[in-house]
Each structure stands twice: as C-alpha cells, then as structure tokens.
Amino acid sequence: MIRVLVLFFGCTIAALSTAAEYLNLYTWDDYIDPVVLERFEQRYDVSVVITTYADDLERDQQVASSGGEGLDIILLDDSSLNSYIRNGWITRRVTKNIPNNRYINWQTVRLSELEKQYAQPYAEGSYGLAYRSELIEESVDSWAALYNPPKEFRGKIGLAGQPTELLPTVLLYLGYDLWNPTSWQLTEAERLLMKLRPDVTLFSSSTQDLDAGFRQGTLAIAPTYSTDFVLLQQESPDLRYVIPKEGGFYWLDSLVIAAASHSKDRAHQFLNFLLEPEIAARQMMYNNSLISHPEAIKQLPEEVRQQLEKFRTQARDQYRFKDSGIWSLRQMMSTWYSLDPEGKY
C-alpha cells in the first residue's frame, strides 16, 4: 500500500517509519507513476511511504534539521547535489547492488564524476516560458514578454514559485552574470520585479496552479518546466512553449540515498527496479521526460519519443541552475519576500 504524507511546518521527518518493511521516499507531489510503486511493493513485499515537499527550500530545511533521519531516498535537483554531498546527507550508491545501472549511458549524463557516484538520473528537461498564443499576433521569443510584457499579457503574469528560479531569469533578461551579479545589478533586478508586481496574479511553479490559471484566463504567460508544459497543453491547446533567445535553463532530477537511511538495501533494490527498461519507459511517459536509458527509450511510442527528444535536445544547450552562494541566496530571499510579504501566493 502506497502511503502519501505531506509535511507541515513543525513536523519532523524522523517521525516517519524506519522499519525495514517500509521504504521512505521524499519527493515532489505526483512525480512517480502509482502503478510503478504498486508493482515494486507487490514484488518485494514492502510499503512505500511518500512524503512530499512544496519546494526545494522546504526540502533542504527539513533535511538539514533532521539530517535525513527517517528517509531512504530523496529526489534532488542537480544544483543541490554538491551541497548534500558536502553536508554528508547522502551516501554513495553501491553499483554492484544496482545491476540495471548498466542500462544508463553515463557518458551523456550531465553530472560530474563525483556526483555520478551518488545520483541516479530520474528526469531532465528545460525551463522556459509558456504563453497563450491566441492573445498575441507575434510569437514570443524573449524573456521581455514576461518582464516587459505587451498589453495583452498585463495583469495576467505568473512568476516562478521559488526565488532560486525567479532571480536568474531576470538576470538573464537584463544580460547580467547569472551567478556572480554585483549588488547594483541585483538591485536593478529587484526594481524591475517591483515595477512588474501589479501585473502579477500568481507566484507558483505548481502544475495545478498554472493549469487553473491558464484555463480560467487569469494567466497569459508564466515560466514553467518542459515536463509540466506537456500536461498544461493537454488542457489548454493554445498554449505554446519557448526557450527565450537570451537562453533558458537545463535541469536534471536524480534519486539519491539518504546517509541516515535504515533501509539502504531496500533503497538500492528500488533504484535497480526503476532502471528495468519497461519500468523506466513507463516512468518517462508519466514524467514527460527522457533520461539516458536507450533501451527504455526504444519502448516509447514514436510520437512521444520525438516530442520528448525535441525537449531534451533544446534543454541541453541551455544554462544550468547552480548552487547559489549564501550572499546571492539571501538577496533572492529578500527580493522574494518584498514581492510577496504576506505570503499570499
């Protein structure tokens, strides 16, 4: 039986089950095919407990406060891997316990050799703009459509739900250094956002929030992930996705084993299971994302494979989100709370 938990403020991860018959997975909501989980549970007679986080900051705070106690597997973005390794929150994978590791074409996985010892690729894609094409005659090709929007988009702007996503896109639009901006460049970025604030109707990266906004007409444009765009377009066929000419972002999500896990054998078993070609193909379909698993990709329907290959090829030419320095992160958070001081969104 799959158990889904949502951590609220004041709760601790350590309260989760640590019994050997449980596998505790910490991830985004709705990011793994329930059928895949059920098959794993049935085959190995284990219950998977899923705990979800709302954003990367919540995940990092929870793991930092507990040391990962009560967790077995954590979903991590590539920009966070190094900090988790440095803090000792995750442990190296024992590849002899993951024989299906041979299916991954590791030469094409965009991680360092050190990161590859810890992380198993789970999903990858790009970060760009989704917009309602019926509202505007010309195609969108720049972040200017978001940060200096035409009249058709005003009052219907969506901004990223995480400050670490928001500020880099502004700096990209302004043509500044993404990872080492000067104080006055950060100030200029903040001024631009404050000027835009009256036109913003949503601060969120949630697929559900974006879907509702586009369908109800309260959103005209918003940054999103290529994987989420596939779902959004199913409900709003006039939506278009573009990686702006100034550039977009590439991301890679991976599964890692918590150093504090009491079920490391189970965790390796789960990672191995996910790399079975049939299971990996099913998971790619569910996440709308390819990974470097040629045998699984062969099993995808041709139309799906072509669409996901297109997204993947576009993504790999883009910038990568990075583990921001403390000073930049503090500035991002300051900007974020200035934009949304009451936590309305």
Rank of each mutant, 00 (worst) to 15 (best):
Y131R: 08
R305E: 15
D56C: 10
E276F: 12
P163F: 11
A296R: 07
D265V: 13
Q307R: 15
R312T: 03
F249N: 00
D45T: 03
Q307A: 01
I243G: 00
G88N: 10
P150A: 09
D56L: 15
R191V: 10
A130C: 06
S204Q: 04
N82I: 12
K322C: 07
D78P: 08
R197N: 12
A15C: 06
T12P: 01
S236I: 07
P121Y: 05
E303C: 12
A19M: 03
S79I: 09
I157Q: 02
Y44T: 07
E302A: 15
A160K: 12
R312L: 14
L308G: 02
N288A: 07
S334L: 07
G128W: 00
P301I: 13
E124C: 13
T164F: 03
E41G: 01
D30W: 06
T335K: 10
Y319G: 06
P237E: 13
A267G: 00
D209T: 15
L25D: 01
K151G: 09
Y122P: 08
V36A: 11
D60L: 14
P277A: 04
D209Y: 05
A315D: 10
I136S: 02
A222W: 08
V63D: 02
L271M: 05
L76C: 07
V230M: 03
I136H: 00
G68F: 02
R43T: 14
V170H: 02
R59C: 09
N180P: 11
G343V: 14
L71Y: 05
S261H: 05
S254D: 13
L167S: 01
G125H: 02
L159I: 07
D177C: 04
D323S: 08
L192D: 04
L255T: 11
K264I: 13
Q283V: 04
K96L: 14
L57K: 01
R240S: 08
T52Y: 05
L129N: 07
V200R: 10
L178D: 05
E124V: 12
Y225C: 11
A14F: 00
S66Y: 04
L166N: 11
T182N: 09
M284S: 09
V48S: 00
L300I: 11
S133D: 15
N272D: 12
T18G: 00
A20L: 12
C11D: 14
L202T: 11
V36G: 02
D228L: 03
P277I: 04
N148I: 10
K264D: 13
N97I: 15
L178E: 10
Y250T: 02
P237M: 15
